[in-house]
Design a protein around this nucleic acid. Sequence first.
DNA 1: AATGAATGAGTATTCATTCAT
DNA 2: AATGAATGAATACTCATTCAT
Lengths: 194, 194, 194, 194
Amino acid sequence: MVKQTEGVDKRSQILATALKLFNSQGFHGTSTASIAKAAGVATGTLFHHFPSKEALLEILFLSVKQEFANALGAMAVPEGELKQQARTLWLGAIDWGMENPDKQQFFQQFSLSVEIPLPLREEAMQGILGFIGAMILEGQKRGVIAALPLPLLLENCHGQYLSASRFFLDRPALARDETHREASFQLFWNALRP
Amino acid sequence: MVKQTEGVDKRSQILATALKLFNSQGFHGTSTASIAKAAGVATGTLFHHFPSKEALLEILFLSVKQEFANALGAMAVPEGELKQQARTLWLGAIDWGMENPDKQQFFQQFSLSVEIPLPLREEAMQGILGFIGAMILEGQKRGVIAALPLPLLLENCHGQYLSASRFFLDRPALARDETHREASFQLFWNALRP
Amino acid sequence: MVKQTEGVDKRSQILATALKLFNSQGFHGTSTASIAKAAGVATGTLFHHFPSKEALLEILFLSVKQEFANALGAMAVPEGELKQQARTLWLGAIDWGMENPDKQQFFQQFSLSVEIPLPLREEAMQGILGFIGAMILEGQKRGVIAALPLPLLLENCHGQYLSASRFFLDRPALARDETHREASFQLFWNALRP
Amino acid sequence: MVKQTEGVDKRSQILATALKLFNSQGFHGTSTASIAKAAGVATGTLFHHFPSKEALLEILFLSVKQEFANALGAMAVPEGELKQQARTLWLGAIDWGMENPDKQQFFQQFSLSVEIPLPLREEAMQGILGFIGAMILEGQKRGVIAALPLPLLLENCHGQYLSASRFFLDRPALARDETHREASFQLFWNALRP
DNA sequence: AATGAATGAGTATTCATTCAT
DNA sequence: AATGAATGAATACTCATTCAT
């Protein structure tokens, strides 16, 4: 009933197009005109849906982050041994990245970038790392995670996740290789051991 | 005999100024005119020394990278227990970042950024991670480092270093705190354990 | 209903203004900003209609050339003595130049200039000299034009036309003087006699 | 005794280099820096010998013009039938152009160009066309040249010479072909016949 | 909501020219 | 005379944003 590409409302078209173009050309390397053109809308239309180019980026960032957070939430298992929970989450996060390479790459590029205003970045981090923070605290209580300062642990988790997903993003074939998948989790989990 | 700021040749002035401005305003947020002005030279002078704004960034990147590599090289101890060597390097790298916050921040911003052409980025990584690569191989031979794929280990080290130095850059006081210093190293070293 | 100068669409305004300014100040002596200002549009508007200053010149060149070719085509008489046909064309061409001094001067300046890419220049020449070429061939068949190599004849016609129109452009009063008009044609036609 | 390229004083080097570069890239397309570099001198040196880029062009123009005038003067024969004198001059001028293609091309490009200030251009024309003017007057007295207005005749001669030399410059092989050489003269001389 | 022509401030870069050495 | 680093005004072109339709 609804045409595949046209029916999707223009707002979504613009968001999807911006995601791709920001990835391949960077934020400053992508003009609003080129986004509009690639999305098949007029230049003015972009500004009907988003007050500014910056706002477009922020909204895009928030929506990708939300999607990622939802995906993580859906795969979390509340019970069982902590290491198994962590492995589920870790591998699930890696897999999500491989299934959504555009969004994953977008994260790589913008989750630490000055293009995203600091408050937004921090808020996003907290939202996503909230899971992890809770899990770490629980792990420390159970004595399976080292009693190191939490902020340092969170920053470390973030860094390891970024580097692992960067690694697999650059070598998609290895993301299906059990050895490498397991190795990446081992590095992550080992770091946290007491 | 030579004036403190004037005597330093203009090329260096421009590099030093660009470093600061790129840090605070980003690459695209900094105009060449503003660099020249802040460096106390004419706009033409910048282009007398650097063929383009991009080239200026790349040269800056290479020079900071070289300085960092030299610093690492100077602190490496060839003999002794591997863990001690690693600790020396790790804490030394953290300290170098604290002593050169501008350069450290520059690295945070550009070592993964699309602003730096990929070949240059990779070359820089290899140059700096060369030390680490050798050390990891030695550690695997001695059985004190896990027998995981080297590229994955290197990417992981890089990620952990970036996150640790980001952590301390945001909280300079903690960089002097022995607990946090040691904790950061522990996370790094633990990750690599067999 | 439509204002005299405003109503004409901005693209035409820009073309007309560029014609005058290129004539009086040369291509390199005329900045795009000055064209826009004199045309009463914003700087960006010029580049909205023309991709570059060079393109503006080329489009202008082609449009003037087309207008001239059309004018020549309209005055050609298919039948009759060849010399009379030639006189009609020659004087018509001179008159067109006097009635469109700006366009005529533009031709003087650019029809041989390196500013216009060679292929464009040649194409324009062929378009305009097509008439003449056919007429020369016919004249040679009838034995009223010397059997000299055609390319040389064409180049010669071009040269004589440029010099004659240059002469009259510099002395507009003489362009109405029957003696001079006839003299200019005599020089042209005599050259071609067997 | 004197080195081929170095010994020639730098002033001449600059002139010779400018001639070539102006020809191939145009006046505005050639930077003083590029002239200096190609001439093997420092940028400052150019301005020691010539007060400005414009002055360099004018001096170059005058020197080429002088050389051409001298060449014409050397080949003029004071006595004999006028047509033979004219043929000698015409073919001599064509030959000079073929032997000095750079200078010939320079003339094509600048003898009518706005780059050369009008007074200078006119003066140069008069210098060179002086010969021709005298010859035309003599021809009219003898009744072998049409009694048309002199300025028109001069402009016409100029135009025919430019087109003929342009023709041969583009087809150097034909400049040795007797048919084409003779044809070019025939066009020129025929035009002037009563 | 959608359009796309129009805007004009902003930017990288060029280049003739100067001048201390 | 010769050098070449330094200058800074000038310029083509970009692009986020607006607004009349």
